[in-house]
Simulated scan of single mutants.
Amino acid sequence: MIEMVIEQRRRSLGGGLDVGRVLPFGKRRMVGPFVFFDHMGPLDVAAGVDRSLDVRPHPHIGLSTVTYLFSGEIMHRDSVGSHQAVRPREVNWMTAGSGITHSERFEKARAEGDHLHGIQAWVALPEADEEIAPSFSHHAGDDLPQWTETGLRGQLIAGSAYGLTASARIHSPLFYVHLDLDAGASAEIPEGYAERAVYVATGAVEVDGARYEAGRMLVLGKDVSRVQAVQPSTVMLLGGEPLGERFLYWNFVSSSQDRLRQAAEDWKAGRMKLPDADDQEFIPLPDDPFLKPPAMS
């Protein structure tokens, strides 16, 4: 059975960049360790767009960000010295741990125009790893196992599934998969994980006898084993083992509210290093009171 259907809610990141936010949701904050899930685009960006479209420097703690594109290009810069473009079917994996700042720029779009479409997810860290040293890794090619079946093209983004393992270092059991399905094709949904979900990025699918259109995440019961495309579709499969309660404030994730307070104070006081000298126009801490629970739906 399907435990819950979550529809994306449109959110503006400023500068004309809107996303479809799926997680966190009021009645479902996480799926396994996945605590955040944004569907970016599809968005056509004209050459010469100004820098207001860029996501300015901002901080994170207690999580890993996972940036994955179907089309387009984003330039990542961070405070541990990384400067790396992410392109279609590649992964930028940034582990914030004790604290990192980064920016995401649309440099290719400014130069020649672009068609942006992808997903950014956040994976919460286990409590024992929340304060590890920040790090960044980029993955492409053989780092991300691919396979084909009749009417199906798959790529493993992170974790383990289908007897395969991706190269990004993870800190708790999880899987994250990209599938392109022809109309009528079906795919097995990985088993062996306590929590699982299907996100329909494009097209429409049938799961457990019902049809679901793009922009919906299906949180699955244990008995659901397959997804079938009713038209050409792009589908993301994700899940893993739950980590227990996590508190989320702005861009910070932690098992401790006191740690969130400290991170907010550090950012507001300018104690977190920015990515580079060209990234001084940063995103300020929101004005809403810290102790007010953030809206989740």
Rank of each mutant, 00 (worst) to 15 (best):
M296P: 00
P286L: 05
P88C: 10
D223N: 14
L17I: 09
Q155R: 15
P294C: 00
H39W: 07
D54M: 06
G154Q: 06
G270T: 07
L13S: 08
P88V: 02
H139C: 01
L243G: 11
P88E: 08
V224P: 00
G48S: 12
I61Q: 04
H76E: 07
L291D: 15
I100P: 06
K108D: 07
K273C: 03
G26V: 13
V235N: 05
L63A: 03
A46C: 11
A194Y: 05
R169F: 07
A204D: 01
P173E: 10
R77I: 06
V80R: 13
S297P: 00
R216L: 09
L220D: 00
A187C: 09
D208L: 09
S79Y: 11
S103A: 14
G215W: 05
M272P: 04
T101M: 10
G184Y: 05
R271P: 12
E206V: 04
R29M: 08
A201N: 01
P293I: 08
W147Y: 04
M75F: 07
Q228V: 04
M296K: 07
P59G: 00
V19F: 10
G163R: 10
S255A: 15
I119C: 05
I61F: 02
K108W: 03
S98F: 03
E104G: 13
P232D: 12
H60V: 11
F252C: 02
I189S: 00
Q262H: 13
K222F: 00
V205S: 02
T95V: 14
V91C: 05
R110E: 05
Y68G: 01
A85N: 10
R105C: 12
G113D: 14
A197V: 00
S52F: 00
R261Q: 07
M75S: 12
Y68H: 07
L69F: 06
W267P: 09
I2H: 09
G16V: 07
A204Y: 02
R77S: 11
D266P: 11
P294D: 08
K27Q: 14
F247W: 10
L13N: 10
L43Y: 13
T65L: 07
H39A: 13
E265D: 15
A133K: 12
I6G: 02
S255G: 13
R259K: 14
E149N: 09
V66G: 06
P173G: 10
A214Q: 11
V207N: 09
L69H: 03
N251M: 12
S64A: 15
